[in-house]
C-alpha cells in the first residue's frame, strides 16, 4: 500500500467522526430534537463527570464486572470440557454437535424469564444467563476445533509412539487452538452483552440496570453517560482480547 492509500481512509474516518459530532451539536442547539431523546454533548460530558465522581458509579461497575467474570469463567470451563468430552467419540460428535449448534441458533434470551423465575431478580440470574449463553460458542468451537484435526497427523504421531498426553499437547491442541480461541472470544463478548442485557431487562443493580433506570426517570444525560462507559469498555475489551489472542497465536 502506498502512503496516500493509507491516508485517505483515515481522513474519511476523521471527517465522519467530526461530522457526527458537529451534527450532534447543531441538532441539539436547534431544538428540533427533544433533549429527552438526545441531550446536548456538553450536558452528557457534565453528567459523565458527575457520574464517575458519584458514590454509586464504582459499585455498579464492580457488580457488573464481577458477574461477567464469573459467568465467563463458568461458560469457558463448561464449554471447553463439554467440547473435549464430546469429540472423544465420532458418534458423540455426530449426535450432539447438531443439538448444540441448533440451540445456539435460537435466541437464548427467550429463556431469560425462566432464569428470573429460578434464580430471582438478583445477580445470580444474570450470572446463570450469561454463563449459559456464553457456553454455546465455546462448546461449539471446541467441538469444531477437535473434530477437524487431520487424522493423518494423529496417526503419524501415534506411529512415532507419542503418549496420550503428548498427543494432546503436541498435536491436538495446536491444531484446534485457533478455532477454540475464536469460540472463547465470541463467548466472552456474548457474556458481556447478555449480562448487560439481563440487567437492563430485570435486575436491581449493575450498569444495565442503571441505564434502564435513568431512562425510566427521564434523565437522558445520565443514561448517555452510562452508555459512553459501555462503549468505552467494549472498545478497551476488544483491543485487550485481540492482543491476548495475537500473543497466544504467535507463541
Amino acid at each position: 500500500m502506498t502512503e496516500t492509500s493509507r491516508l485517505w481512509p483515515c481522513a474519511i474516518q476523521g471527517l465522519i467522526a467530526a461530522g457526527g459530532l458537529l451534527l450532534w451539536f447543531v441538532v441539539t442547539q436547534s431544538g428540533e430534537v427533544s433533549p429527552l431523546f438526545l441531550p446536548a454533548p456538553d450536558a452528557v460530558v457534565n453528567a459523565w463527570v458527575a457520574l464517575v465522581r458519584s458514590d454509586e458509579f464504582w459499585p455498579a461497575v464492580g457488580v457488573t464486572l464481577t458477574t461477567i467474570a464469573a459467568a465467563y469463567i463458568l461458560a469457558a470451563v463448561a464449554g471447553l470440557l463439554t467440547g473435549w468430552l464430546i469429540t472423544r467419540s465420532p458418534l458423540l460428535t455426530r449426535a450432539f454437535e447438531p443439538l448444540v449448534s441448533g440451540i445456539f441458533a435460537i435466541p437464548i434470551t427467550l429463556f431469560f424469564p425462566l432464569f428470573i423465575l429460578l434464580f430471582g431478580i438478583g445477580q445470580e440470574s444474570k450470572l446463570a444467563y450469561g454463563a449459559v449463553y456464553g457456553f454455546f460458542p465455546v462448546a461449539l468451537n471446541t467441538i469444531a476445533g477437535f473434530a477437524h484435526v487431520d487424522r493423518r497427523l494423529v496417526d503419524a504421531a501415534r506411529c512415532m509412539g507419542l503418549s496420550r498426553f503428548g498427543l494432546f499437547r503436541h498435536v491436538l491442541l495446536p491444531a484446534a487452538s485457533p478455532v477454540i480461541f475464536t469460540g472463547l472470544r465470541v463467548g466472552f463478548f456474548i457474556c458481556f452483552a447478555s449480562v448487560l442485557g439481563g440487567e437492563a431487562i430485570a435486575s436491581a443493580a449493575g450498569i444495565g440496570h442503571n441505564i434502564a433506570l435513568s431512562a425510566e426517570l427521564f434523565e437522558p444525560a445520565r443514561m448517555y453517560a452510562w452508555i459512553v462507559c459501555v462503549v468505552a469498555a467494549a472498545l478497551v475489551l476488544t483491543a485487550l482480547v485481540s492482543t491476548i489472542e495475537r500473543r497466544f497465536r504467535d507463541s
Partner: peptide, 10 residues
C-alpha cells in the same frame, strides 16, 4: 463491537 443492548432504552 458495541453491545447494542446499551441503547435499548433509547
Amino acid at each position: 463491537a458495541i453491545p447494542q443492548v446499551a441503547f435499548l432504552p433509547l
